[in-house]
Design a protein around this nucleic acid. Structure first.
Lengths: 231, 231
DNA sequence: CACGTTTTCGACCAGTAGGCGAAAACCCCG
DNA sequence: CGGGGTTTTCGCCTACTGGTCGAAAACGTG
């Protein structure tokens, strides 16, 4: 029974969320688009494996986030011999455009091309996971450059979530979690003028929220923003 | 490369959270305790597989919740040929005590016995996941009988979370999500008297929260308890 | 220098959870 | 049968959160 690793690598481009896809040259499912990945080797765990395989497509240093998504194991998910897949979610900041082989391209997740095997459902799962985690973790910073304006961050959140978010709110929420640190610099205003935006960076001093907030907290532990995220 | 499925099946007993373990009779790791599970067959997906394998230990109808946890894939996680494991989290209500084979026993998660392979870390992961999901989903009901008092529910939450929760708060939080439905009946008071507690059941009319709340919501969507849990 | 544009900030409101403390409902005992 | 102990239940208050709105700040352009 084979085991493969696959990754839905997402990034924000303009106002849309994109996923990195790879056009299959060979049968089965030739000319359909698939997720990067490949067979798990005997001497590596799944995370090492996906990082190794992604390195062929993008510079791994540019991957700002990698996490396990789920196992896809329907017996007939690929034709031929049985293959179980461990799927990952990967994120790339919006300021880098990694060199990539000619057979890979970024596609908007809203209108995916003809996808191979069950890869469309993996992309869906990745979108959903990203959307869920955006609000209660700090993975949002994995989508943005090291220095960014609140407007840019808002646009990224909007693209990933699929609905408009308010810059006022976003800034306040993140500030309360001590995640925003002003760099002092400002970004030049756009061609139509406007007040120059202040630049921020992600503050490592902040609350690192990996897991959801506990709604039911230990007694006397203050409020959510007081920092009760486990880890 | 082999693939196995394993489950950390948890339940609350009194004030402690327990996990179902199985004592290995054969080498390797004979007499150490391990999680139920076994090899994935070629004609089943991982979830079907874990349900089938758990059926040998407990009545599957008593499993109130099953979900994928993570893949454990360190090359040397088990001696001998490579085996990748898909781990699950399972929950059993506290009112049933399934008949079980003589070689399986419930152990308090606080003081686990000598565990086989990497199973201790899987139990840890399961505890952590349950704790996280308790507050923002309704998996809490999977730990309780179909009819329960608020005090019982509070005790279960306390056991699973590892800290005291207030019954007042718990009731209010769950009520706001429309998850509590009074049955009308009352439970007899304990041996030391006291006001009889009202019985509740889990209301299917309520907000089914599977994913975390969105802290940043679409505009004009009201408040968290207004029901913005995705799905 | 008035105007449009974009960012930033402050104020207000509704809703949420945490923390009491009092009242209700029961048992037991004298 | 009434008082004391026990447990549940309910109401009130506070702190804090996120959503919304509008005004002020800071820039370019005509």
């Amino acid at each position: 029974m084979g085991h493969e690793v696959l990754a839905a690598v997402l990034r924000v481009r303009g106002a849309s969320l994109q996923v990195m896809l790879w056009e299959r040259a060979r049968e089965p499912h030739a000319h359909r688009w698939s997720l990067p990945g490949g067979e798990l080797r005997v001497d590596e765990d799944v995370e090492s494996s996906i990082r190794r395989q992604l390195a062929e497509k993008v510079d791994v240093r540019q991957l700002s986030h990698v996490e396990q998504l789920a196992v896809f194991s329907a017996p007939d998910r690929v034709p031929g011999p049985r293959v179980v897949a461990t799927a990952f979610l990967g994120l790339v900041p919006s300021d880098v455009d990694p060199e990539r082989p000619a057979d890979t391209e970024w596609h908007c997740v809203e209108k995916l091309p003809a996808m191979a095997f069950d890869h469309a459902s993996i992309v869906d799962r990745a979108r959903h996971r990203l959307g869920s985690k955006l609000s209660y973790t700090n993975v949002g910073f994995a989508l943005a450059p090291p220095e960014f304006t609140i407007s840019l961050l808002r646009d990224h959140y909007s693209a990933a979530l699929g609905y408009r978010v308010s810059a006022t709110n976003l800034q306040r929420v993140l500030s309360r979690r001590l995640l925003l640190e002003p760099t002092g610099g400002t970004a030049p205003p756009g061609p139509s003028g406007g007040r120059p935006a202040a630049l921020f960076r992600f503050s490592a001093k902040g609350i690192k929220v990996t897991d959801p907030f506990a709604v039911l907290r230990p007694p006397g532990s203050g409020r959510p923003a007081g920092g009760s995220g486990t880890t």
